[in-house]
Design a protein around this nucleic acid. Structure first.
Lengths: 210, 210
DNA sequence: CCCGCGCCCTGACAAATGTCACGGCCGGAA
DNA sequence: TTCCGGCCGTGACATTTGTCAGGGCGCGGG
């Protein structure tokens, strides 16, 4: 498979130390792969990558400091030679879209069989795009977020569970306006509650940027 | 550590195939450990365990079919010789309590360093209890669920986001009663919203059974 | 026994939430 | 230019939600 060339150098980013270490063990079984760096926070990705110059970075989406999508974008500009493979727990349709827009070269969910991961890494390293086909279909079906900018902003603020008055003050809007945006979001998500709307938007990855 | 005795036989249960495989790789690095079975659903734990008679079972809490706590209880009665080490993503205080009550011998969160996992397995196999100390402290501080049976039931139903009328019909109660239980739950959790109450209760592991 | 305590259940009331119709603003099409 | 459509912002209104006071029931202690 990888005859005699130098091994592919990997950077792993995942906030769960146990999973990170386990992935390192799994990938180290492959003779043509080497893990050269591990980080547990999104904002440590770029510094560590600059120091160790990996060929491929495996990034989780849910991470403290900086989410995987933002880390992808930062890494692509800081170290364009490094490919990015996003590895995430949830197959949120929006995540895939955002990851690709941010410059990721591959997207794999943690449900995929373990043996396929090494192949995904090799494909990405070879310049190919790797995407879970079922997730890709779902992404196309779901489409981009129907929510307008303000609507997402308000929904995001509503996630914390505060009352309308607090949201209004935090966003410098009238209470009526906040209610209206929430109502629109509820309608567009097909929910009947503010809470349900938040959940649906979250599941689709429409609330990502903070 | 394990001079010449037979290796410890392990069963792995985790719904994410990638994590499961990675853990298998990690644990297989230890010469005194062998993975003899892997499952991705809680209701497959007992059948597989009966067939392969592992010495220690590593169970995730979040799993389809049957959650890790219920699987622990089932496994302890079906195969008492097999020790159980619960390995979970979230350090929900209630999870630890419930796991121990269900007969688990150890409880580890996925934040712990990878190198400690093998030791945890060995300790559990030796008959010791393994518990994350910080989590144990938090569990004692948080205490058991303050929610009454009906209150948890109503909160669980409210998780889906339905209106009071639907909950009332589903639970065969008056709307007023449902509101009252919800109000009590809101008060006990310290929340100001039904939605916030649901989140807090979920985070503390008070909504477990179904 | 009788009392107190906690849980369950219920309806009436106040407060928050969701809906609606409306006006201003901007950018593209006719 | 004018018109049209989308997004933002706002207030009035109906609906839903949360709070409160209260009654019934079972259980353990005095």
């Amino acid at each position: 498979m990888s005859g005699s060339s130098a091994p592919i150098r990997l950077l792993l980013a995942d906030d769960q130390a146990l999973v990170r270490g386990a992935l390192a063990a799994l990938l180290s079984l492959e003779p043509d792969l080497t893990v050269v760096a591990e980080v547990g926070r999104g904002d440590e990705v770029v510094p560590e990558a600059l120091q160790h110059t990996p060929d491929v970075a495996l990034l989780d989406v849910e991470m403290p400091g900086l989410d995987g999508i933002a880390a992808t974008a930062a890494l692509r500009t800081a170290l364009p030679a490094c490919r990015v493979l996003v590895v995430t727990t949830f197959g949120r349709p929006g995540y895939l879209r955002r990851a690709m827009e941010a410059g990721a070269n591959g997207f794999v969910v943690k449900d995929t069989p373990a043996r396929q991961l090494a192949d995904a890494v090799r494909r990405v390293h070879a310049g190919l795009r790797v995407v879970d086909p079922t997730l890709a279909a779902e992404t196309l079906a779901t489409g981009a977020s129907p929510l307008t900018e303000r609507e997402t902003e308000v929904l995001r603020a509503a996630r914390a569970g505060g009352a309308v008055a607090e949201l209004a003050k935090a966003l410098h809007l009238s209470e009526g306006t906040v209610r209206n945006h929430l109502s629109a979001a509820i309608g567009k998500t097909g929910a009947r509650n503010r809470a349900a709307a938040v959940r649906i938007a979250e599941q689709n990855g429409w609330l990502l940027g903070d």
